[in-house]
Amino acid sequence: MKSTQNTRFKNSWFKDSAFLALLLTTSVCMPLIGHAAEVSAFSDVQNIHIRQLAASCAACHGTQGNSVAASGDDGANAVLAGMAPAEFTEKMLGFKDGSRKATVMHHHAKGLTVDEINQLAVHFSQQKRVVTTALKSQTLKAGHE
């Protein structure tokens, strides 16, 4: 499909919501459109760059900031999901400029830009807090290499 047709599609056909509803209910192809659109719309609003950078933090802070092993007393491996943006930014900027004592985090904060820190702050504040526990281990089976 050519881009000019795309534009026409967007500007005229889809503005007619009655037509859209008809199309959705009558065409077998429409679920494909709806679903792909959902994916790309998700990509747009979530900012794919920041969602991937944030996901990089999961090794120490859990999926979407839900750490399974936050060690209470010194704030290590902190839960980032739902953290207030101001708290996140204050801590990270402190690690970055050296004003906040760090064991590991200064090596990460110094490598990030202020803009990235601000965006991560917003991203993590929007993640839902889910209480999770460490994964249960198993007995190694005989057939494994």
């Binding site: 795309n6 599609f9 967007k10 509803a21 209910t25 679920p31 679903h35 659109a37």
Partner: peptide, 19 residues
């Protein structure tokens, strides 16, 4: 259809329940 959908995402997303 994926290309089409990309261009029209903002309009279609509210109908994602169908999809």
């Amino acid at each position: 259809f994926i290309k089409l959908a990309g261009a029209a995402s903002a309009l279609v997303v509210s109908n994602s329940g169908f999809a």
